[in-house]
């Protein structure tokens, strides 16, 4: 079985488990939608333009709930399950790619639901073309999924994992948030989207290389 076939089997496994457990669709997604809705309620609209808050709230919600998607319990493998995969000869990088891929798909779903809600509640100025928004969401989700999966692997077995993993992800996700926000803002400002998109691509490539380099030793160390 080749690398991509292994990754696909792992990704399908995670998506099937999510379909049964419903952690993203039943818990994370509704709370993300509520988070988008709560900010206008808590904002003094006489002094702050909601339109100016729309995209920042969107990226903040995407970052926080995106981390929850990648670090959800149903995505956690037990030591025995990891041993089974090792003994089956599954490439640790393929396993990483499958898990991050599944997380990215789920993040894209969450961001696709919260985006129209954000537009509805905040009415931001200068909406980007759908193709640009979709491209940014894919790059952002892929990067965040890789980062959170990596953080999950680094903290596997640690007692403080649920607290430590998000603390690792948040600062390292800054290039993803900045690149995504700038790419979307550039439409309203009439500036080039090339720079922010390049930042996103470079961040994603850097994370992919980190995963390739660390997947094997991390798997051996945590089995």
């Amino acid at each position: 079985m080749n690398f991509w076939s292994q990754a696909l089997v792992i990704a399908r496994r995670d998506l099937r488990i999510e379909a049964r457990a419903g952690e993203v669709t039943g818990v994370i997604l509704p709370f993300a939608a509520i988070a988008v809705f709560v900010v206008p309620l808590a904002t003094d609209t006489l002094t702050v333009r909601l339109a100016d808050l729309g995209w920042p709230v969107y990226w903040l919600v995407s970052l926080l709930f995106g981390m929850s998607v990648a670090l959800r319990n149903s995505a956690t493998e037990s030591p025995t399950q990891r041993r089974h995969l090792l003994l089956l000869g599954v490439d640790p990088v393929a396993r990483f790619a499958g898990r991050a891929g599944a997380a990215a798909v789920l993040m894209i779903a969450v961001m696709s639901v919260t985006a129209p809600l954000m537009v509805l509640f905040y009415d931001p100025d200068g909406l980007p073309p759908i193709a640009l928004w979709a491209g940014v969401v894919v790059l952002f989700s892929t990067g965040l999924a890789m980062l959170a999966t990596l953080a999950g692997d680094v903290t596997v077995g640690l007692r403080a994992r649920s607290m430590l993993a998000p603390l690792l992800v948040a600062p390292l996700a800054v290039p993803l948030v900045v690149g995504s926000a700038r790419a979307v803002e550039s439409v309203g400002r009439g500036t080039s989207t090339l720079g922010p998109l390049m930042l996103l691509v470079i961040a994603d490539l850097g994370l992919a290389i980190s995963a390739i380099v660390t997947a094997q030793p991390l798997e051996e160390a945590t089995t």
Binding site: M1, R13, R16, R20, R83, H84
Partner: peptide, 27 residues
């Protein structure tokens, strides 16, 4: 090498058939 330990290592949310088919596909 076939190793069986204390914990069967099944995925709780998958059916028995899905569990063994998952291993079959990977093998």
């Amino acid at each position: 090498i076939g190793l069986s330990g204390h914990d069967p290592g099944l995925y709780a949310d998958l059916t028995l058939s899905e569990n063994i088919r998952l291993w079959a596909r990977l093998a």
